[in-house]
């Protein structure tokens, strides 16, 4: 015990001051995240607002009229995959669609996707979006490690060495971050949103949309902590990503929808 005390006394006071400064910075970031997680997510995906009058907005307006609910804001963001997610905050509800979803999906399939997101907004999941940003913050060392490796000359982004460094840090922070996400995510939230969408647009349309999204290009290299927000899980099936999987499999979702239809 005396040895530990002597070690603690031997550490220079500057180190303690540095630790306190880091803690203050982290608390400030946490506070900013809690009040503006919606803005952070919109900026992160460089989402562009869709004004009323455009085709996608009209599709959403018709759905909200049908569902007798408030029309949320609609945003588009660039992505090679067809996917979507929603942000739910007291003062702001928003649906974000990828440009690929708007370009590749048929109008009725697009309707089913928007209805699914409306389902998430209706069965409000406000802590979910906040948790994604908070866990994104906990996951930040992974990105820092990757950049440190790149700047130290370990190679290019896709080379093995920087990816190994990234995976190592991910193995350290991943389980805690994933546990935070798993604990704040209900296993039934996708089923509830699917049921809502099926009631508005019909079971067959949603089943076809899910099948399309499963067979098409589903994988996109997003921050694993954001994967829970998406309509279908965009993560690749690698070992560490498996911790962040909060979506039931597409087969289970389809089976559940077909049971409702009977």
């Amino acid at each position: 015990m005396d040895e530990i005390t002597s070690i603690l006394y031997s550490i220079p006071i500057n180190v303690y001051i540095l630790i306190i400064i880091i803690l203050i910075i982290l608390i400030t970031i946490l506070f900013i995240c809690s009040i503006s997680f919606d803005e952070i997510l919109l900026r992160r995906y460089n989402a562009q607002k869709v004004e009323s009058g455009e085709f996608v907005y009209t599709v959403m307006s018709k759905l909200t009229e049908k569902a007798i609910t408030k029309t949320p804001e609609l945003y588009l963001f660039e992505s090679p995959i067809a996917n979507s997610f929603s942000i739910t905050k007291k003062k702001r509800q928003a649906i974000l669609l990828t440009t690929t979803a708007v370009n590749k999906l048929k109008p009725e399939e697009l309707e089913a996707v928007i209805a699914h997101e409306l389902g998430h907004i209706k069965h409000s999941n406000q802590p979910g979006s906040f948790t994604s940003v908070l866990s994104g913050l906990l996951f930040l060392p992974t990105t820092i490690a990757l950049w440190a490796a790149l700047l130290c000359g370990f190679g290019q982004e896709d080379d093995n060495a920087p990816q190994f460094v990234r995976s190592y840090v991910m193995a350290l922070v991943g389980p805690l971050t994933a546990a935070l996400i798993q604990l704040t995510t209900s296993g039934s939230r996708e089923y509830i949103a699917d049921e809502y969408s099926a009631r508005l647009c019909g079971v067959n349309v949603l089943v076809n949309t899910l099948k399309y999204m499963d067979t098409g290009n589903r994988i996109w290299d997003v921050n694993p902590t954001h994967a829970r927000l998406f309509f279908v899980n965009p993560l690749s099936d690698n070992i560490l990503n498996s911790l962040f999987n909060t979506h039931p499999s597409i087969e289970k979702r389809i089976r559940r929808l077909e049971e409702i239809d009977k």
Binding site: Y168, A171, L172, G174, P175, D237, I239, L240, S242, L243
Partner: peptide
Amino acid sequence: MSLKWITALFFSFLAYMIV
């Protein structure tokens, strides 16, 4: 039990042992 997430936790254990 799924093998994938158990393997992920095992990797995590190894990473912490390196620390």
